[in-house]
Structures are given as C-alpha cells and as structure tokens.
C-alpha cells in the first residue's frame, strides 16, 4: 500500500518539475518582453525595469532563482498588477475558485451518482432515456454557452420575478451570487458522472458476484448497495482526476462570464496582458492541483479495490 503510494509520489514530483521547467522556458522564449507597449519605453527605463524584475540576469540564473523562490512559495512579482506579487494574487483568487470548484464537484456527485444509478436500475425505461438525453445535452453544450444563457434567463428575462439571480460579481461570496456560477460549472460534471455511473453500474450488475449475492436471497437493495455499488464507483473515482482539469478550465469560463475574482480569470487576464509570471504561477498551481488530486484518486482506488493495495 505505502510502496504503491510512494511510487505514485515519485512519478508526481518529476512531472511537476517538467511542468515548471517547460512553462518557464516557453515564457522566456517569447518574442518581445512583458513591457512592450504601444509606445516603446526609453531604453534606460526599460533597463531599469528589467533589472527590477531580474530579467537582466543570465537565463539559467533566472531559472535557478525562480525554482528557489517557488520552494518558498514565492511566485515572483506580477508584471502587470504592479503593486502585487503573484503569490498575493493567487492568495486572493484561489479561495474563490476552490470554493466554487468544490461546491460544483459536490453538487455533481450528489446529483450525478443518484441520477446515473436510477437510470441503470431502470435501464431502457423512459426515465432512463430522459436522464441520458439530459446528460448528453449537459456534455455537449459547453459552459460558455450555458453560462450566458443562464445569465440571460435568470438575470434578464426573469429579472422581475422571484427567480431573479445576480449574474455578475462576487459580492464577498453572497449565496445568490454563487448559485449560477456553481450550477453552470457543475452541469457537465453531473452529466459525465451520471453517464459513467450508469454504464459502470449496469456492467457491475451483470457480474458473477452480483449473481451470487442475488442467489443468496439478499434483498435487491442490499445487493446493489453492498455488493455492486463499491465496484461500480471505481470508474467514477477515476474520472475525478481528469475532472479537476475540467474544473480548472471551467473556472476560466465561469469567472470570466460572471465576473468572479478567481484564479481562472486572473489566468485569462494574465494571458491577454502577457503577464508572464502570473500565467506561470497559475499554471504551476493548476498542475500541482491536478497531480495532487490524482494522488488522492489513487488512494481512493486502493480503498475501493483491495487488489490494488497489494500490487
């Protein structure tokens, strides 16, 4: 078990290092600099700026410095938000994004698993087909379509009714301001999780051990919950790894649409403004998150499937 976990950890660390290195050199490869403006700056100011950000140092030295600072949790100064360090920006944005992401994931699991399980248990019924059509719609129609449409419906068409919801701003995390972004972020996950749960539960219900459990005379409810469900959850748990990536890209979209001050929007703004350190910082954070969550997924695996523990 621990050997398994440490082996995973040993893959994770080099992966993160590769991500950091590639991001760093790609950014430094960029033609022009972060201070290129419409009107070029006088050379001496440019030189001062570069010196201030350490860009006059040799490339390898910048790299070593950056790595050293990273280890201390310092992502360097933002090139565009002059008074902030990237660490500060991330510190502001990350809680917003993580709260939305966690809420969306929670909602997705809470709705998606029962929906998929219901569809599986009533396979090929009208309810099954309806649930799966809705799921297909949730997968196919992207966030950035659903978001504005929800905003249009709840922010404009229903403006005068009790269903009106704020469509922009964070308002210090007031509940109504979170509803639309979280739903919008959760919809594709609900759809994916429902589909995966359905397929996996149907397959599990056909296994020999479920047949054995039924032959024992256990009530069907118990057969499903005790014998089928845990195995059926393995693909769902596996999906939660890649889901983090979707969550991160999804946060770019919903934070842009709904004007939320999260890291997704910082990243997009940073990309549009060529704020290299900010973009790099968010990328590294995102990669660490994904890698960390994959580790958790591996742990959950071991819990769900005893065979894994001994491999």
């Amino acid at each position: 078990m621990w050997a398994y976990f440490t082996r995973r950890l040993f893959i994770a660390i080099p992966t993160l290092w590769v991500v950091i290195t590639v991001a760093f050199f790609l950014m430094r490869l960029a033609p022009g600099g972060p201070f290129d403006q419409e009107a070029p700056l006088p050379p001496e100011i440019m030189a001062n700026l570069k010196a201030a950000y350490g860009l006059d140092q040799p490339l390898w030295w910048q790299y070593v410095n950056y790595l050293g600072n990273l280890l201390q949790g310092d992502f360097g100064p933002s090139f565009k938000y002059k008074d902030f360090s990237v660490t500060e920006l991330i510190g502001q944005g990350f809680p917003v994004s993580i709260q939305n992401g966690a809420a969306a994931l929670f909602l997705a699991v809470l709705v998606g698993i029962p929906l998929g399980a219901m569809a599986a248990l009533k396979q090929n019924s009208g309810a099954d087909h309806a649930a799966m059509t809705v799921a297909m719609t949730g997968i196919v129609i992207p966030n950035f379509v659903v978001g504005p449409l929800l905003a249009l419906i709840f922010g404009i068409w229903l403006r005068e009714t009790m269903f009106a919801l704020p469509v922009a701003g964070w308002n210090n995390g007031a509940l109504p301001n979170r509803i639309l972004p979280v739903i919008c972020l959760a919809l594709p996950f609900i759809a994916y999780i429902a589909r995966i749960t359905r397929a996996s539960l149907i397959e599990t219900l056909r296994t020999n051990y479920v047949r054995t459990a039924r032959a024992k005379g256990l009530p069907f409810r118990m057969v499903v919950l005790r014998h089928a469900f845990k195995s059926a959850m393995i693909p769902v748990v596996t999906y939660l790894g890649p889901a983090t990536v979707f969550l991160l890209t999804g946060s770019m979209v919903i934070e842009t649409i709904f004007g939320l001050p999260g890291i997704g929007r910082y990243f997009v703004q940073g990309a549009l403004n060529r704020d290299y350190t900010l973009v790099m910082g968010v990328t590294i954070l995102a990669a660490s998150l994904v890698i960390l969550l994959n580790l958790f997924v591996d742990l959950a695996y071991a819990w769900l499937d005893p065979k894994v523990r001994y491999e």
Partner: peptide, 16 residues
C-alpha cells in the same frame, strides 16, 4: 435452495 457457481474467481464480491 442454494447454488454453487462455475467460476469461483469471479463469483465472490472482490471488495468484501
């Protein structure tokens, strides 16, 4: 009435 199945490898619930 009880039944013994053909394939003992797959007929027991793996996670119990």
């Amino acid at each position: 009435i009880a039944m013994i199945f053909q394939d003992p490898m797959t007929s027991l619930t793996p996670h119990m």
